[in-house]
Design a binder for these strands. Structure first.
Lengths: 188, 188
DNA sequence: GTCTATATCAGGATAGAC
DNA sequence: GTCTATCCTGATATAGAC
């Protein structure tokens, strides 16, 4: 079966899609390879044919988001007003990967995974530092932390599921800027 | 050993304290009863002597926070300006139970636990509705969700560990009110 | 590529000795 | 109250047939 050649990553993509859905419902630790296999209607061993370990699946699930983070950072560093544009870029990131954020932001398994992958941790650290700016006061640090948590949180919140992406994006950017401006050293 | 009588809940308290620390480091699902036992220097069965199931331990860990939530709700309902005082009360809650919040807010195991305990879910639902007010617009709903996520998030954030409780409390209340006022229908 | 079967291990939970 | 020993279940992962 399956014509020879052109076996592009269909199998892998199906696994990633199924994993993402289950992760967002039950968390990473709460999702077994058996569940992923069941939701695809295949056996466990077939999943292992596509990915050697569960960590490899996690990596594949979060890869697109991190690709976008890399892009955002490059873009931000070239911007004359980094913090202003970064707020909007981060909101776009959350909107684009709403499910992934909800599923992964606070999962302990993912945190361990990130800690063992230095480049990913470095990316996130850089994001935070850019948002904070140099020598931030306590108020600024609290506001930045609140904004970060809020970004992840709105994805998790099922109460907001009925709000469309455009509206959510607009309000998030606006409220996020309100929050950060209220803590800026050089605010107007 | 151990003199007869006066065996007050010392054993249980030690288990709860150890569990809280491990939960906050590794998440609930990532913490086994073996780990709790090891950190106490006892065997697994000794932990089971104090608590019949792991769920019972979870319940004991979050019980103080929920006790305070009940108190806050009663207080809020008697207040002439519920939303104003609720913001401060919730911040106090987070400050008082900083570790528990960090450990439990987003853990899938805890979410399942809450879903199976209706009164706990009802409490949290009531909190949200009070903060939202009647017939909230999308902006208000997003702001409220952001505030809720931010409350949990600042507990999780290790970057804020060095900020003392009083400062954190002040900034959280102030920034929280900024956020909510920016989305109030009847704002000044 | 998918299956069945299995090895290996860890988790929650219980029984019974001390 | 704590221990050792054990049961049962489910998880990751592998081997080898089809």
């Amino acid at each position: 079966m399956g014509r020879p050649g052109a076996p592009r990553g269909q199998g892998r993509d199906r696994v990633v899609a199924a994993a993402l859905e289950l992760f967002s419902e039950r968390g990473v630790s709460g999702t077994s390879l058996q569940m992923i296999a069941d939701s695809l209607g295949v056996g466990k061993a077939s999943v292992y044919y596509q990915f050697k370990t569960k960590d490899d699946i996690i990596q594949a699930v979060i890869a697109p988001a991190f690709e976008q983070i890399r892009h955002i950072l490059a873009e931000t560093e070239a911007s004359p007003a980094p913090q202003e544009t970064l707020v909007a870029s981060l909101v776009d990131l959350v909107i684009a990967h709403r499910e992934v954020m909800a599923a992964l932001s606070y999962d302990p398994a993912v945190r361990r995974f990130l800690e063992s992958h230095e480049e990913a941790s470095a990316l996130i650290l850089k994001l935070g530092q850019t948002l904070l700016g140099p020598a931030p006061a306590a108020r600024r640090r609290v506001a930045t932390s609140m904004f970060g948590a809020a970004l992840s949180g709105v994805g998790v919140d099922p109460n907001l599921a009925d709000i469309d992406d455009a509206t959510l994006r607009r309000e998030l950017i606006d409220l996020g800027r309100t929050l950060l401006h209220a803590s800026a050293a050089n605010q107007i």
